[in-house]
Design a protein around this nucleic acid. Structure first.
Lengths: 209, 209, 209, 209
DNA sequence: AATGAATGAGTTTTCATTCAT
DNA sequence: GATGAATGAAAACTCATTCAT
């Protein structure tokens, strides 16, 4: 509670933020495999020992970084999504704001991918295999909620919730695929995704000629 | 033509195959980052020097492995897909046989993912950013062909070719997502994907009630 | 200016000096080819990683070592040579003090030879082919200066400057040749060299009977 | 005695010669340190195992190579030197033909230097420290003989035999020093050396004005 | 005579981490 | 809070050599 303690905390927080930002830059420039503490420290302009001091060990830093990345992305998208007045609109907003985030902070998306697809727990479980259904992945949960409520309200037709949610999220991530982002900006890509999934989630109009 | 030359080639080829298989196992067990030559050699029951002898260097091995993985997957799927009598059927077969491959050789899919998302060229370009539209990625090309021909024949409606192709391929890969494969076998998952994308590619039925 | 900064610098400098001395010892004992970082570290009583830490890489260490060796030798000889009151005297002092240095620090001379005749640049240019006329080789430059000034003052006769300089320097180095140093100490060897080159540089008395 | 045996011997000899030539090329291109059997075999267009087969081990090859180089050089120079009708003439011929050899076969001289200054015996004695006075070094022996006989005949004055011999031989080698050979061809360099050492070996003319 | 296959030993270098200051 | 110093471990790679063929 002492002002000294707060002051130190401020400094610590700033340092941690700085290091995490340097980590994101490093992941973009040279990838997870080569992102050693030395490389990160160089980009942060500090010593490697200071990273260990603030994050305990390397995986501590990685975990804090991915946590930051997920939270940032989630808060950005969730804030914009909740403005939707019905499920279809919320789905549209989800797609569009997700792409807007990717376009605005491309390096954050790359850093996220680098960690998720490279990091493993000490017992060798890949991070991309970790997310048990309830924990983490707030965006996937939100997407499922939108879809479920849409089905319950009759706005959407019949489909498997998890599959549709994963498919939509996967499609969003594909904007970063090689050749795609260079060919089409996030808004156009989003518009097309909206068209595609509008049809995909619709209540079976194809069978009612 | 001498039996000597063939014999030696047999030995070499067999060794190379054995090492690539050990690489796939290693990538599954401990991931790309920890898949050192020592770990691979241990699983193959040989010395690390022998790997260098047969593949030049580590990236030589990685590149040969990914090439094998892509070719195997492609030939499996393409062979089954070509049996389709129209574009919709070929799309169905593409989805179903892709999932069948993933379910039959899950460790091959994981190995592919590990390499694609972790390897980088010497100038730090991620492998997942490499594929220019024409080169490599035979399955993505086939998928685009199916979709394009479907549009030309009127079987399919209007949508962006690349986006739809990427979306479908992404959705197929999501079968390996945590919780999905445990909840649903490849056949069921495929059936659901077929339903979803049948609607998504249909010629605008949603707007014709 | 802080005692902290100086202290740390002291530690680093001392370490670097210690490592260079261990390098010289190693070069004498087992030669350039076998002088691995491990061998040097063993003699210095430290880890190989510490060498890399202080010198970047192996060639960094080698280059710093040779630089030290050349500077030490040059300052020893130049200091004694400048006491000469005319060119002939300076030439005598140059020869004698060079041999004195070799006799006093024989291991430094060996280390220098080991590096110069074994090291190559990354593009395979031998170190013994590197010295362009102006750069480096301060002793050779001094020798040429003495000879040139002696010619200009009339103390010395006509001869090619570079050839005579190289010949004298070569002759000095030959004291370390097998059988020579064991047969004759530096002072006697120097006296004989002085006699020889006194005649060699003299203004053609042989043709003026 | 069988023609088969001779034939094989022919093949063996040719092979050995070929490998030694490849060794010389390799030593020139990349130096002793990097001249591995693999590099030599590559340049010879054969397998490394064949080198081991013909020379036992690496040092066997090196020793045969240096032996060849020394013999070639010696026979070239000795043949030309013996034509001299007195000691002074033989000294001139020795100097001139030595330089002619160096200019004609520069890569042989470099290879010799690379081996002599880099190779060490198993108990770490440098090759450049090996030559006991009688053995090997036929050219140094010849040079000493010329000088001794010149002194005995009165053609030459008083000087230390070994020192003068080493000095002359060192001066000859300096033609390969950086900047020298490019500035002056072997004939001019030889002429200047002859002038210099004519004075140096003369019977004390400097003291008789 | 010749080679491909194979390996153990050894190379340099980088790494994450600890510790005294 | 911050750093320079230091290290053991591990990385990829190269080497000389052996051996079966």
């Amino acid at each position: 509670m002492s002002s000294r303690g707060e002051e130190q905390s401020f400094i610590s927080d700033a340092r941690r933020t700085q290091i995490i930002e340097a980590t994101i830059v490093t992941l973009n420039e040279i990838g997870f495999v080569r992102a050693s503490l030395a490389q990160i420290a160089k980009r942060a302009g500090i010593s490697t020992a200071l990273i260990s001091y603030h994050f305990g060990d390397r995986m501590g830093l990685i975990n804090r970084t991915i946590q930051t990345l997920i939270e940032d992305n989630a808060s950005f998208v969730l804030e914009r999504t909740k403005a939707g007045r019905n499920c279809r609109e919320r789905l549209h907003l989800f797609i569009i704001s997700s792409l807007e985030y990717q376009e605005t902070y491309p390096e954050r998306f790359v850093a996220l991918v680098e960690i998720v697809f490279n990091a493993r727990t000490p017992d060798n479980i890949p991070y991309y295999m970790l997310n048990d259904d309830n924990d983490a992945e707030p965006l996937l949960l939100e997407l499922r909620t939108i879809l479920r409520e849409g089905q319950e309200s009759g706005e959407f037709g019949d489909f498997d919730l998890m599959i549709m949610a994963n498919t939509i999220q996967g499609a969003i991530g594909e904007h970063a695929a090689p050749g795609v982002a260079t060919r089409m900006d996030a808004a156009s890509y989003g518009a097309e995704l909206v068209r595609i999934f509008d049809r995909a989630v619709s209540p079976l109009p194809a069978r009612q000629p």
